[in-house]
Computed example of a mutant assay.
Amino acid sequence: VGLSCVGKFRCGTSSHCISGSAQCDGVMDCENGEDELSCVRLSGKSSVLQVLSGGVWRTVCSEDWNSALGLSACKQLGYSRELIGTAAELFFNQYSDHLCLLLSLRLAHHLLSFSSKTQSHIVYVSAECGSRPQFSSRIVGGNVSALGQFPWQVSLHFQSEHLCGGSVVADSWILTAAHCVFAFPSLWAVHVGLTEQPVNGAQALAVQKIIYHGRYRPKALDYDIALMKLAEPLTFNGLVEPICLPNFGEDFEDGTMCWISGWGATSDGGDASDSLLSARVPLISSKACSTPGVYQGYISPGMICAGYLEGGTDSCQGDSGGPLACEDSVWKLVGATSWGQGCADRNKPGVYTRVTQSLKWIHQQMEVRKGSRGWGLGLAVIDEQVFEGL
């Protein structure tokens, strides 16, 4: 009683609420500054840049765009007039529509590596996501994966044994399934850049923190998603690369062909594979997946199905947490392997955690905070060289 935040913004897990219009206004009204996080996003398949202002998401360079919103956008991206200089003045005052467009395009096609430079949330562009620089698409045949084919794939080991998969989404962050990862981060190791088990000579990384989605429910396996923060950041080298997160509001059409991968069992209840296996599967609509003959209404908005209703190709035990990856100019993480009835059975396709349903939560966990290192908005931000080249 008295703790409702209906129509307002709740500060973290506290009972303190603020007006929705106070969110992303440049003033920290919450004790830990939660109201000034996740104020910028990429939206839709076209990756349009949007900023939150007055409780409304506004698209950069739209008809109602003005210099005040331009200033707000740059401030939320961590840039001041002093830092950007003359080019910022052009942006703020809308002297050039071409600048506005080019800025949005640059923002849409890069992924950031963050390290806290000031009290602002942003640093410099350092890497692109969703690419496979060490993999040749001319490799054909079989379902044994080649080095560099899925450079975001990781093997999660608990007390030196592979239990689940996961995906590199940033230099310090691994996305996996909540049902995979127990407590005790010190007992986990993340192995990257490998295709064969056991992991002779593969890079093993310690886990600093495990974060579950607050709405995860083990029985229903809804919001079956977790983040593991690494003790030390990864170095991307072609064999280890991050996969892109989808944009807010981005839809992936039914029938889209995507890839699943992992070291899971090759048959229901069978032994795990020593080699990283992969398979191409189509996305299945939630309506088709919820029919009485399939999963009888158990598919929630936070789930997405993929596979073949006739069976034959599927993820299995030990693949949990691994990626459902779809290519759309770049590779995007559409799902995390969650559950299914049996493996590759007729009318029982794989069910995956729908990443777009948890984007806000993902970005909030990875947001750079004062005095910390990690990943921020999960979208591209400019450095001075962007402006120098305009």
Rank of each mutant, 00 (worst) to 15 (best):
K117G: 14
T118D: 15
Q119C: 06
Q119N: 12
Q119W: 13
I122A: 13
V125L: 09
V125I: 11
S126Y: 11
A127R: 11
A127P: 12
A127F: 12
E128G: 11
E128A: 11
G130N: 06
S131Q: 07
S131G: 05
S131F: 00
R132W: 04
R132E: 04
P133D: 03
Q134L: 11
Q134E: 09
Q134G: 08
F135Y: 15
S136W: 04
S137Q: 13
R138W: 13
I139L: 15
I139T: 15
I139P: 12
I139G: 06
I139R: 14
V140R: 15
G141Q: 11
G142T: 06
N143A: 09
N143W: 08
A146R: 09
A146K: 10
L147D: 09
L147I: 12
G148D: 05
G148A: 05
Q149K: 11
Q149G: 03
Q149D: 06
Q149V: 10
F150N: 02
F150M: 03
W152F: 02
S155C: 01
S155R: 01
S155G: 05
L156Q: 02
H157V: 00
Q159P: 02
Q159V: 04
Q159N: 10
S160N: 09
E161H: 07
H162F: 00
L163V: 00
L163S: 00
C164M: 00
C164A: 02
G165E: 06
G165I: 03
G165R: 05
G166V: 06
G166S: 05
S167H: 00
S167Q: 04
V168R: 01
V168K: 04
V168M: 02
V169W: 02
V169C: 00
A170G: 13
A170S: 09
D171V: 00
D171F: 05
D171W: 01
W173N: 02
I174M: 07
I174R: 08
T176S: 04
T176D: 00
T176F: 01
A178K: 07
H179Q: 04
C180G: 03
F182T: 01
F182Q: 03
F184Y: 11
S186E: 05
S186G: 04
S186F: 03
L187F: 02
L187E: 00
W188D: 00
W188C: 02
A189Q: 12
V190C: 04
V190K: 03
V190I: 10
H191G: 05
V192S: 12
V192I: 14
G193R: 02
L194Q: 01
L194F: 03
T195A: 03
T195K: 10
T195M: 08
E196W: 01
E196A: 09
E196Q: 13
P198Q: 09
P198T: 14
G201I: 08
G201L: 08
G201D: 08
G201Q: 09
Q203S: 07
V207L: 01
Q208E: 15
Q208R: 13
Q208C: 06
K209V: 11
K209F: 06
K209H: 14
I210S: 14
I210K: 09
I211L: 13
I211G: 03
I211S: 08
H213N: 13
H213V: 13
Y216D: 05
Y216H: 13
R217K: 15
R217W: 13
K219G: 12
A220I: 15
A220Y: 14
L221D: 03
D222T: 09
D222R: 05
Y223L: 00
Y223P: 01
I225T: 10
L227E: 02
M228G: 08
K229C: 10
K229E: 14
K229W: 06
